[in-house]
Computed example of a mutant assay.
Amino acid sequence: MANHITTKWLGNMKFESNNPSGHNLFIDAGPENDGNGEGYRPKALMLSALAGCSGIDVGSLIKKMKLEVDDFNIEIAAELTEEHPKYYHKVTMDFHFYGAALNEKKLQKAVDLSVEKYCGVMAMFQKFADVQVNTFFNK
């Protein structure tokens, strides 16, 4: 098994989870769920994984295509179902690119390749959520 993590209970609602990269992170519930808010919330961490996965794809394609981009970020808004188990059923993912010389056509191709071909986290999300992706170019 290539991916193996260990998540250790630290008491109350807090956990420490390792990662194959060698970096650890903390997971905790918020005060509204008897936690202390000293770590990532599990469901929000899934959204960070989605943004990170697609962001790495797009960053790699920007480099390979030799595109001029001053900056870019990804904003995600997601809605949970009303009933338990609550999961994200609607996700909106907005890519924001910044720069004076943006090649909009190639940047859109990079986003599309990530969404449709490369990002495994996106493929997982698409199994249970309606995912809408938008691209914004800011010069």
Rank of each mutant, 00 (worst) to 15 (best):
residue 120 G to D: 11
residue 58 V to Q: 03
residue 107 L to G: 03
residue 32 E to I: 08
residue 115 V to A: 13
residue 40 Y to R: 08
residue 22 G to F: 00
residue 83 E to S: 09
residue 73 N to A: 07
residue 124 M to H: 08
residue 56 I to F: 00
residue 86 K to R: 15
residue 8 K to T: 15
residue 62 I to P: 01
residue 61 L to E: 06
residue 51 A to P: 02
residue 118 Y to V: 14
residue 112 D to G: 08
residue 80 L to D: 06
residue 14 K to W: 05
residue 19 N to Y: 08
residue 83 E to M: 05
residue 112 D to N: 14
residue 16 E to N: 11
residue 55 G to L: 07
residue 86 K to L: 02
residue 109 K to S: 09
residue 35 G to P: 04
residue 53 C to T: 05
residue 79 E to G: 08
residue 56 I to Q: 05
residue 52 G to A: 06
residue 128 F to P: 00
residue 30 G to D: 12
residue 83 E to Q: 13
residue 15 F to P: 01
residue 34 D to S: 11
residue 45 L to F: 15
residue 50 L to D: 00
residue 33 N to K: 09
residue 94 D to K: 13
residue 107 L to R: 02
residue 112 D to E: 15
residue 49 A to F: 06
residue 92 T to P: 00
residue 72 F to D: 07
residue 138 N to E: 13
residue 23 H to D: 14
residue 38 E to Q: 13
residue 102 L to A: 10
residue 89 H to I: 02
residue 132 Q to F: 02
residue 23 H to K: 13
residue 33 N to I: 09
residue 4 H to F: 11
residue 5 I to V: 15
residue 37 G to V: 06
residue 57 D to T: 03
residue 38 E to K: 11
residue 134 N to I: 12
residue 76 I to D: 01
residue 43 K to H: 12
residue 82 E to W: 00
residue 128 F to I: 13
residue 124 M to K: 06
residue 50 L to A: 04
residue 120 G to Y: 05
residue 116 E to G: 01
residue 17 S to V: 10
residue 115 V to Y: 14
residue 2 A to H: 12
residue 30 G to S: 12
residue 89 H to L: 07
residue 70 D to V: 11
residue 41 R to L: 10
residue 91 V to T: 08
residue 36 N to Q: 12
residue 137 F to S: 04
residue 124 M to R: 04
residue 62 I to R: 03
residue 47 L to E: 02
residue 63 K to E: 14
residue 16 E to C: 10
residue 44 A to D: 14
residue 122 M to S: 08
residue 12 N to C: 04
residue 109 K to D: 08
residue 39 G to V: 10
residue 127 K to M: 05
residue 88 Y to K: 08
residue 31 P to F: 00
residue 6 T to E: 09
residue 36 N to D: 15
residue 115 V to C: 10
residue 47 L to I: 07
residue 111 V to M: 01
residue 54 S to L: 10
residue 81 T to S: 09
residue 20 P to K: 10
residue 3 N to D: 10
residue 44 A to S: 12
residue 103 N to W: 06
residue 21 S to I: 14
residue 88 Y to E: 11
residue 129 A to Y: 04
residue 46 M to V: 09
residue 44 A to K: 10
residue 91 V to C: 05
residue 73 N to G: 13
residue 3 N to A: 11
residue 42 P to S: 09
residue 97 F to S: 03
residue 103 N to V: 07
residue 120 G to T: 15
residue 18 N to E: 11
residue 56 I to E: 00
residue 40 Y to T: 10
residue 133 V to E: 04
residue 115 V to H: 15
residue 13 M to A: 13
residue 130 D to L: 13
residue 18 N to K: 06
residue 29 A to C: 04
residue 64 K to V: 01
residue 108 Q to M: 12
residue 91 V to L: 07
residue 3 N to P: 03
residue 77 A to W: 00
residue 16 E to H: 07
residue 128 F to H: 14
residue 79 E to A: 12
residue 89 H to D: 15
residue 83 E to P: 05
residue 7 T to Q: 10
residue 29 A to V: 02
residue 24 N to S: 15
residue 18 N to R: 07
residue 96 H to E: 09
residue 34 D to Q: 14
residue 99 G to T: 08
residue 110 A to G: 06
residue 42 P to D: 03
residue 95 F to P: 02
